[in-house]
Amino acid sequence: MDILSRWRAGGETPDPAKLLAAIPYCQLLGLTAEVRDGALVLIMPFGAHLIGNPVLPAIHGGVIGSLMETAALAQIVWEGGVERLPKPVDINIDYLRTGRPVTSYASARITKQGRRVVNVHAQMWQEDAAKPVAALRAHFLIAGS
């Protein structure tokens, strides 16, 4: 039985913080989740292991993508209605600013949820939410095997 089915069987509602705690790679990145003003926000404190360019220094592009992809996944699970963990089909990442060595945040918004596919947009920012570091657009498969 998968993690979401186990939660459902136990009468639990999908909890993004618990989901992140159950995913080893999210633990490696140090991701946590909070609900702020009714919106789910993922938080990634800076760690030296997130560096991709030691000269600037800057957070690795893959870390930025990982944070936003996880924000998208957590948003889908949080809003509910999925039987199992969504699987990414494709992602598009726009890198807008350098990811500096400080705490990063990400949130996502479901643009459209169909029966099989969900379209999600996510953003990552650091000190100023009005100055996004990166944006992601993705499709996740929520049905099928």
């Binding site: 995913i23 990145l29 592009g61 893959g62 993508g65 990982s66 944070l67 992809e69 992602i91």
Partner: peptide
């Protein structure tokens, strides 16, 4: 493995 790992590499 997480999709983000693939993105990173």
């Amino acid at each position: 493995v997480h999709g983000g790992v693939i993105t990173g590499c």
